[in-house]
Nucleic acid binder design. Structure first.
Lengths: 229, 229
DNA sequence: GCAAAAGTGTTGTGTATACACCCATGT
DNA sequence: ACATGGGTGTATACACAACACTTTTGC
């Protein structure tokens, strides 16, 4: 008979791949590990799952405690379970990925600056455990997802210009996008709307500011719409 | 300090959504549960993860022991972790889904016929735990995947006709597909090749037999090809 | 020769891509 | 007035969807 106590239990951790974008490059949030094993190496923000929380709740708690952020875009990525992925013993990791505007993060106090750091995704340091693999899987997922689902707005300010949005997409997809086609499609999709405002103070024409139209987006999802960049 | 023994550990199970296709309808393999809780209800084939095996190895072991099958198409689906999903305590389930030709299965002895049964996916019985949810996620994943990746051949005999393949796709996608367009696209994709043989004995024109071209498929994947139905 | 399923092309329609100039603003 | 990035439309190629008849085989 299958009783819970009849079976040995693995440890279960949650690891989060946190993507950020500062207007120039796609970055990843890593933490400098203070304990053995892998002391002083960089790791994904993570921690052990508590028995009274779901994996997603756990991911949110961990991100909150390590970065101070809540309410971010979060999605389960994959469960990594190589037998030897953690030298301390048998540890499964349920990995999540999150999108964050790093400028929201800079405002927060209480984070030891040397321990938590953004790294450009093209210049990552050596990471502990199997975190390199997790990051690779997360990045592939993000790239695939962004072309057919309108995620990515979380990485920008609430109000953004179309040029900023396009740069972000180019950053994620690592390829140039035609400006006119990009604007046409993103506007046709109706997932963003103009705020009517313009941003002035630049030394050129004042660009129009847009925002994500969440209500409209939810309606479109109900009708089963397909987004495409 | 994060030591493994400092944290309580959840139990971890593996559950498998096994899709089958008998030439007429898409089916799902369920097992009649003999223990409490949920005694006598239908469940996904599953079991506890052993510490010395990866989740995928565990899924293969479980499928082998409950159905006798190995070497099937298997892919991690999602990790389900609701706190109350199992009344016995805190149990995470790493779910997989698999594709199987049920006719391969019928040949196997040693399976108590009343305990393991195929159900048409449109006529499922009440299931235990959160297995209904897991099945729903698996079916959505299968539907999405089949349109851009050439999976599904596992559900047919090694040699199959284009009409059989088309019926399978119609079954999975639950919509009619135009015969000429289907043939055109599937042949253009190069993932199947003619065997040169024909199947006779029917009371109509003898159809050509095709097979999945695995070598060619691997080459195409390397070049980053996109399949599309 | 008839029933039953296999097999085969073309055309229209819509969607994706490629491409270059004018506009508004600040200095 | 000039430098800088913002904003706009069209023509072409390609991909997808719709559609009906002929061929082969067994009875």
């Amino acid at each position: 008979m299958d009783e819970l106590q009849d079976y040995p239990r693995p440890s279960v951790t949650i690891d989060c791949v946190v993507f950020g974008y500062d207007g120039i490059a796609l970055s990843l949030l890593l933490i400098n590990r203070k304990e053995a094993p892998f002391i002083n190496m960089w790791t994904l923000p993570g921690g052990f799952l508590f028995l009274e929380e779901t994996p997603e709740e756990s991911a949110r708690r961990i991100l909150k405690s390590k970065t101070g952020l809540n309410n971010l875009y979060l999605e389960q990525l994959y469960t990594f379970g190589d037998v030897k992925r953690d030298p301390r013993g048998r540890v499964l990791s349920v990995a999540y990925y999150a999108l964050v505007d790093p400028r929201r993060l800079e405002l927060l106090a209480g984070i030891a600056a040397n321990d938590v750091k953004w790294f450009e995704s093209s210049k990552l340091p050596k990471t502990a455990f199997d975190h390199k693999e997790i990051i690779k899987v997360a990045y592939n997922r993000l790239k695939a997802k962004v072309t057919y689902q309108p995620i990515g707005f979380e990485l920008l300010d609430k109000k953004f210009t179309l040029t900023e949005l396009q740069f972000l997409y180019e950053c994620i997809l690592q390829r140039p996008i035609d400006k006119r086609n990009f604007r046409k499609r993103i506007l046709e999709s109706k997932v963003i709307k103009s705020t009517g405002e313009k941003r002035s103070g630049q030394k050129n024409r004042a660009p129009e500011l847009f925002e994500f139209d969440e209500l409209q987006y939810k309606n479109l999802v109900k009708e089963g719409f397909q987004f495409k960049i």
